[in-house]
Design a protein around this nucleic acid. Structure first.
Length: 211
DNA sequence: TGCCAGGGATTAG
DNA sequence: CTAATCCATGGC
């Protein structure tokens, strides 16, 4: 099975790279269609200015927040999204309250926040709240399609439920699976290399559109 | 130098 | 309901 192959190739990933659940949430929004190295810079600049807590973030003017997260790209859009997220978080009673909610309720609530779509919501559920959900990203679609596991027109929910059924309600394995797919794509299969020299799954290189 | 990154909202057809 | 388009910096 694909999961075992990836794990055997790359080993444990131990995601998400963040110090606190709140930092996971910020990173989940900042990394939308953005290279993670840029997100790290943005988070570093933000930490230079404020403590990483929703109250402190909301004390920044939107323009100052945008300036702080500038390296992550889309900084005006993301500044608005981060503020909207923190507003919603505090209105709901904070992390400790959300942690008591059932996963479907928590997911539905996340999806009401502007700037939080299906993938970002699942990032937060899995990596900040340790809920057993699978995160479907662009790499996942490419890899699964290339391996013949998808026809190509399946929607986000279909793919997510299929994997969750296959793996089972195990947040540790689901955590690793998504992280391994990203690792497979970004660390060993470099963009625009015609072949992936070091990649043991080279026929499945995710960085090339055509297999 | 151009393409693309751990998407989502909005607009158009 | 599917398909463009916009948002924007930094690496290769």
């Amino acid at each position: 099975m694909l999961y075992e192959r990836l794990f055997a190739t790359y080993g444990e990933q131990g995601w998400w790279p963040a110090e606190t659940p709140f930092e996971v949430m910020l990173g989940a929004i900042l990394t939308q269609n953005t290279a993670w190295t840029n997100v790290e810079r943005a988070l570093g600049r933000l930490k230079d200015r404020i403590a990483l807590a929703p109250e402190a973030l909301l004390e920044l003017e939107e323009a100052a927040l945008a300036e702080a997260i500038r390296p992550s790209g889309y900084f005006n859009v993301k500044a608005r999204r981060l503020r909207a997220f923190c507003d919603a978080l505090l209105a709901a009673g904070g992390e400790s309250v959300l942690a008591t909610w059932a996963t479907p309720h928590l997911r539905a609530w996340l999806l009401t926040i502007p700037g939080v779509g299906a993938e970002t919501a699942d990032d937060i559920l899995l990596y900040a709240f340790d809920r057993p959900v699978f995160v479907v990203d662009a790499y996942t679609r490419r890899l699964f399609r290339r391996m013949g596991l998808l026809d190509g027109d399946e929607g986000y929910e279909t793919i997510r439920e299929r994997v969750e059924r296959a793996i089972g309600p195990d947040s540790v394995s689901l955590n690793e699976y998504h992280a391994l797919i990203v690792r497979h794509a970004k660390d060993l299969c470099r963009a625009r290399k015609p072949q992936c020299g070091r990649c043991s799954l080279k026929s499945d290189c995710l960085m090339r559109e055509e297999g």
